[in-house]
Amino acid sequence: MESLASVRLAGELDLSNVSSLRAKFASIDGPAVVDLSDVTYLDSTALNELALLRRRVGTVALVVASPNVRRTLEIVGFSTSFRIVTKREELG
């Protein structure tokens, strides 16, 4: 899926940096891959932005390395709306 837009995020995603997150997502205008491999913390702030992105562009795949982050995504049912992989290569 070489034609997908790609965004790489890192560190903690919370209220204090949500505006830069929004800016990054705003530049995406089609199906995308959001790489969360280096994200150490994620809560509903980022979940809301992911939901908005997904609604806008239709298809979003997430690369998730941390089991903690994965668990959060699963609790809110994102595993059904997003394709979640542990490694980028899995997307082909």
């Binding site: 509903s44 609790i75 809110v76």
Partner: peptide, 10 residues
Amino acid sequence: MSENGRGFFI
């Protein structure tokens, strides 16, 4: 894909 409403659930 609502833009909020998840916090307390979590």
